[in-house]
Computed example of a mutant assay.
Amino acid sequence: MNILFEFFLTFAKIGLFTFGGGYAMISMIEHACVDSKQWVSHDDMMKITVIAESTPGPIAINCATFVGYKQKGLVGAIAATLGIELPSFIVIYLIAMLLDNFLEIAVIANAFKGIKLA
């Protein structure tokens, strides 16, 4: 399997099936990148996590970008970053497309009115 596609697929699975934000993804990223794929060592993963916490942006995206860059340079960084971002983007895009239909349901429209007041 092409390593760039493997970066994309691995990080897409993490991005799609992890709930709780970037900090919840760190252990899954470490398991995939250190234990399963052996793309980086445990020490490298600790360094990547520290750097990702100190740089601006979401920590999971920063970790994915650093892992991809360490293995395959700029194209690896792009593949890993797209992999972790794309699932969330697609889900949010679909929800946004369907939101108009949801707002036509009386219960949901009233709930949003209540949220707006709060």
Score class of each variant (00 low, 15 high):
F5I: 14
F8N: 03
F11V: 02
F11N: 01
K13H: 06
T18V: 12
G22E: 07
G22N: 07
A24E: 09
I26N: 01
M28Y: 15
A32C: 04
C33D: 00
K37V: 03
H42E: 10
D43G: 02
D44M: 02
M45D: 00
K47R: 14
T49C: 02
T49M: 03
V50M: 13
E53S: 12
T55Y: 08
P56M: 06
P58M: 06
I59H: 03
A60K: 00
I61W: 05
A64F: 02
T65A: 15
Y69L: 01
K70G: 00
Q71P: 01
G73P: 03
G73R: 01
L74C: 10
I78C: 11
A79K: 02
A79G: 11
A80T: 02
P87R: 09
P87S: 12
S88A: 15
I95A: 08
A96H: 09
M97C: 14
L98E: 11
L99Y: 15
L103D: 05
L103P: 07
L103S: 04
I105E: 10
A106W: 04
V107S: 15
V107P: 07
I108L: 14
N110E: 14
N110S: 14
A111N: 06
F112L: 12
F112Q: 07
K113H: 13
G114S: 11
A118D: 05
A118I: 12
